[in-house]
Design a protein around this nucleic acid. Structure first.
Length: 629
RNA sequence: GGUCCCGUAGCUCAGCUGGAUAGAGCAACUGACUUCUAAUCAGUAGGUCACAGGUUCGAAUCCUGUCGGGAUCACCA
């Protein structure tokens, strides 16, 4: 049976880095209630909807099911726009006349509507400045920025899930940042979140590292070399591969054919023997295995810590790989599975457009799928959860399609709550990352380089002069990581993305540091202010200020949408929008140097709420907001 | 070959249940720091939304097909 290990077994996370898709049957099915799909302040919308529905009913004798509201585009005057095309068949009027008729009634009947104009089939309503002033005041008073869901559920998020034979790389970074942020999003809307990973700690890959270490390391340890544990083990995985290829070449030179050479190279034979002993529970092998995995976990912990991600529970494949066998028995009895003549067990999913899939080998052992069936059941027993989100690259789309289908057929009601957060590869300009060609971007290296870049930019701009070294370093860490995380998270998860290690990640424009900078600048403003932020009824806000309020009011809906779509990118793009809008205001209006203290107080309040939303939003992405930079 | 994902400015990306003249950043060019942090702001230039049909008052968005890129279809994980 060992002959089947032709290559390193793949894990949840492979050497390649990964683009998601949204094919999931469940994606569309599970959220029929999409009334919040438009990021428009609910309150105003519902107020206006009532008025508009009445107006349409009285005018045209027909009651619309729902209205199409959108924020008025900048090039037109007005704040909110109602699309009236759908009503023309009832009004028997032109789109312009229809809009005029509705607009007139709305202006008369709704206190928030100050005026209106109609362009083609678009009714643009002008909302009273009082509304925006009131909204900001409400926001400043409220202690929550995101409306909680009415019935919270338990949500488990799985991410990272590495192999234990080499360090984490850029692909894991995307995976971890996505998983972490998706967990944050669920939490933000009020769900209970459990974060887990499944660690592929057994199998031929770790045996390769073990064999190579035993043969060539001369007793090297993380302690006596100063190497991070995961890098040390990864080093010997590379050594194994080099040695293995040497041996194959030698055998081929002696006239052995290639297939046989690959099969009989002594170091590979030794690795297989080690795996066999591991499966028997051989004491010496187990001890080495535990030691080397221990090194790896220490290394992983350091990287997770640097990334700012953590887990509530780790699952280990050495514990779970036999799970699921008893469930197969159950499935056989129910007739969900069937047994072939050679006694292997299968499921036929051709009724749902999928193939046949094996669940037990003819020798009775589990496969990846069996294990995942077992682990899923285990997790729903371990935790009070209704949903389980797997953050795994899109190369495993098919696997999860089959997995979810199997669990449904086994009759688990929670199977409807399974979701594969399928994300795209991270490519290099030259194509895929390949460990053999040494083009893998190491996570630790990348994080370190980002901090160095931040330090260099900081020094060049002279921004942190006069601060203590420790504080400078902390700021550089926050900015460097912010740049990296935002760079990755602003992209739609399911799309593949290109990363060029030659260009360092930018710190200007649509970047993490730009958002952080805006936050730091507001904080500085608030420190310097002699007036406290506050709201006066008499304020008549400027155009730029209203734009900021409008943007702030979208936040809750954006977070809900992002949680529903499992897309941190929506939050990232929103914060960028907010910051652009705020900076437009900041650059054009003086805040502290203002003769009217009421205006200063209002602008400080606007700024304070903006900083609050930036801070909260960045936190959802796992990005810290510096007080100064 | 079957199935699935992707294709928007030179580059990296937005564009939400179909809505107005498809938007940002980078790179290029022009302007704004004795004034709250210029890691900023304002502006110029840059597009047959891969292509062809269809549905619709209206399509980058939905449907069909074609082309291009990728993934997957193991008694591997």
């Amino acid at each position: 049976m060992f002959g089947v290990y032709r290559n390193q077994p793949r894990s949840r996370h492979q050497g390649k880095c990964y683009g998601g898709n949204r094919f999931s049957h469940f994606r569309k099915g599970r959220c029929p209630n999409r009334k919040n799909a438009k990021f428009i302040m609910e309150y105003l919308k519902s107020e206006l909807t009532n008025t508009a529905v009445h107006a349409i009913e009285n005018l045209f004798g027909f009651r619309p099911e729902k209205l199409d509201w959108q924020l008025t585009r900048k090039e037109f005057s007005g704040d909110l726009t109602l699309v009236v095309f759908p009503f023309t068949r009832y009004s028997k009027l032109s789109p312009e006349e229809t809009g005029q008729a509705i607009g007139e009634v709305m202006e008369q009947n709704n206190a928030w509507v100050d005026g209106y104009n109609v362009v083609k089939g678009f009714l643009n309503l002008e909302i009273s400045p009082k509304f925006w002033v009131k909204s900001l005041a409400d926001m400043a008073k409220s202690n929550q920025l995101v409306r909680p869901v009415s019935n919270p559920t338990g949500v488990m998020v799985e991410y990272s899930s590495p192999n234990t034979n080499k360090p984490l790389h850029l692909g894991h970074i995307r995976n971890c940042l996505l998983g972490w942020s998706v967990g944050n999003l669920q939490k933000a809307i009020g769900n209970n979140v459990y974060r887990v990973q499944i660690i592929n700690d057994r199998g031929i890959h770790i045996c390769k590292s073990m064999v190579a270490w035993k043969l060539f390391a001369g007793g090297e340890t993380p302690e006596n070399t100063g190497l991070k544990g995961d890098h040390l083990v990864g080093k010997y995985y590379v050594v194994f591969d080099q040695k293995y290829r040497e041996e194959i070449r030698e055998l081929i030179d002696k006239g052995v054919d290639e297939t046989e050479a690959k099969d009989t190279a002594p170091i590979m034979v030794a690795a297989r023997e080690m795996l066999r002993k591991w499966e028997e529970g051989d004491a010496e092998v187990m001890k080495l295995w535990e030691t080397m995995n221990g090194w790896v976990y220490q290394g992983f912990d350091a990287t997770y810590d640097a990334m700012g991600v953590s887990f509530d529970k780790n699952y280990y494949e050495s514990n779970t790989y036999k799970l699921g066998k008893s469930l197969v028995e159950k499935g056989l009895q129910k007739g969900v599975f069937y047994r072939e003549a050679d006694s292997s067990v299968w499921i036929d999913l051709s009724d749902v457009g999928l193939d046949k899939k094996i669940l037990l080998r003819s020798d009775g052992t589990s496969v990846y799928m069996t294990q995942d069936v077992g682990t899923a059941v285990q997790r729903f027993e371990d935790f009070d959860i209704q949903r389980l989100i797997y953050t795994v690259g899109n190369e495993q789309d098919y696997h999860f399609q089959v997995l979810f289908e199997i669990l449904k057929k086994l009759g688990y009601s929670w199977a409807e709550g399974l979701y594969h957060l399928s994300y795209g590869m991270v490519d290099l300009p030259t194509g895929k990352m390949k460990s053999r060609e040494g083009t893998v971007v190491d996570a630790d290296d990348l994080i370190r380089e980002m901090k160095e870049t931040a330090a260099a930019v900081s020094a060049e701009l002279g921004k942190t002069e006069g601060l203590a070294t420790a504080e400078k370093e902390d700021i550089n860490r926050i900015i460097g990581l912010g740049a990296l995380k935002y760079f990755i998270l602003k992209v739609d998860p399911r799309k593949r993305m290109t990363f060029n290690p030659e260009d360092s990640i930018d710190m200007q424009g649509n970047t993490g540091p730009f958002l952080q900078y805006t936050h730091a600048r507001i904080k500085s403003l608030l420190r310097k202010a002699e007036t406290s932020p506050g709201i006066s009824e008499n304020i008549s806000p400027e155009k730029e200020e209203i734009e900021v309020v409008k943007t702030l009011l979208r936040f809750s809906d954006v977070v809900h949408q992002a949680a529903e779509d499992n897309s941190p990118a929506l939050v990232a793009n929103f914060i960028y929008d907010l910051v652009k809008t705020y900076n437009g205001f900041y650059q054009n209006h003086s805040i502290l140097r203002n003769e009217n203290p009421e205006i200063t107080a209002w602008r400080l309040s606007l700024s304070e709420q903006t900083a609050r939303v930036i801070n909260f939003g960045l936190d959802l992405l796992g990005i810290e907001s510096p007080e100064r930079m």
